[in-house]
Amino acid sequence: MKKILLPVLILALVIQLFVPSYMIWQRYDVLKSGTEVKFDIGLFDPYDAFRGRYVSIRVEDAIATSFVRGRYGILEIDENGFAKISRVESEPPKEGLYLISSEENYFSFPHNRYYMEETLAPEAEKVIGASAEAYITVRIKNGKSVISGMYIGDVPIEEYLTE
């Protein structure tokens, strides 16, 4: 029994490392090779004891906030790179950009948090409340998406707040 325990323990510790590594690899791949689009946002500032302070994102898009049935949000991109969800489908499209919903039965925008340094998050809320030019950039690959940044005008929000 004791002989088995050490390999089991080592396996468990390897799995402990593998799970967050796999989570990272999945997102890193999208960040590296996905297509970048922009979404207009509104936000407010809440708190998570484990992951820290964040600004809660609400995408200014009629379909993304109206619980339409279907899992796949088909994207339409304008000339400035801003995306809108044009319709929601039950099956993934064969071509074009789309987002996979965070819910099974209806479309829900898959991102609702942008984590920031503790002191910057409340400031971000104030600034974006007064600015209409806030948006997030999202990298998308095969429907999977990762937030790559948050901007005011063309300046990353972290830079905007620290300047």
Binding site: P20, I24, R27, L31, F50, R51, R113, Y114
Partner: peptide
């Protein structure tokens, strides 16, 4: 707890 949380923080994973 800390490591999985930091992954969520880095990639802005949803709640």
């Amino acid at each position: 707890f800390s490591s999985v949380a930091i992954v969520g923080q880095i990639f802005h994973l949803p709640s």
